[in-house]
Amino acid sequence: MKLQHTVKAVAVLAATLALTAAHADPVQDDQLLINGEEELATQAPAPDHLEGALGDTVYSGWLFRDTDTRAMQKDDFDNPMFLFVDAGLETWSTPEGTADKSCADCHNDIEESMKGVRAQMPKVNDKGELWALENYVNDCRTNRMGAEAWGWNSQEMKNMTAAIGLQSRGMPVAVKIDGEAAPFWEKGKEMYYTRFGQLEMSCANCHEDNFGKNIRSDHLSQGQINGFPLYRLKDQGAVSMHQRFVGCVRDTRGVPFEAGSQEFRELELYVASRGNGLAVETPAVRH
């Protein structure tokens, strides 16, 4: 028994050391166990299309955050995003617009109708356009409810995408990158490797070449989007994927694309595909 423990400890240590040598430390000794019951996988085999660019494993951003931040995401009572999820759930069944209909009038129970939706977004719609979850939400609002579109980064939109995203929590990210999606995916990929701004930095410079390392006080993750929209302690509020993209491009002393733009939806598809296989963590907590 004792021996077994020792053997295990040595094996863990060896694994940790090997990892440190390749890329410094995503945490190795913690599990994302939600509410003490549901475990979310925070790493997955790297998708084939990456051709080894991230080694053989993709990691959730959760593994790069400090102990306190990680703990907040383990318990839905401690996770500040659940205030927004609750607001989203309330809106789900509140009639609005000239049609006086609520989401629930058409989609019934969110837990059933929206299960798995987040995991496949963004995707090509039946008109051949690349749509993110926000586009689908606003399409229902304007065309089926006769209500006004929400702003991409509005609180209402984040409440709703958090509530919908939660219904896929734990399911593997599985965005489609072939067929009609392929040309969008290619453009997103090109953008990921483009060095923007006066600092001439690409997403890959930070999140592929240097994840695990520190840029001043920031511990660089792989820049995965499986947890969005998420609560950012620094902003004391919910942050959408495109908001994060805007921030990262601005930090290169660059001019970002608009939230919701064609360019950022293509980037979203490509970045999502880099996390194919990771569990949806929406709504995550980061600092």
């Binding site: 923007f196 701004g197 006066q198 805007v246 601005r250 930090d251 002393r253 660059g254 001019v255 970002p256």
Partner: peptide, 13 residues
């Protein structure tokens, strides 16, 4: 030359 340079960190061209 830069690609989409902004004025410092303002995000403005």
């Amino acid at each position: 030359p830069f690609i989409r340079p902004g004025v410092a960190y303002t995000a403005k061209p």
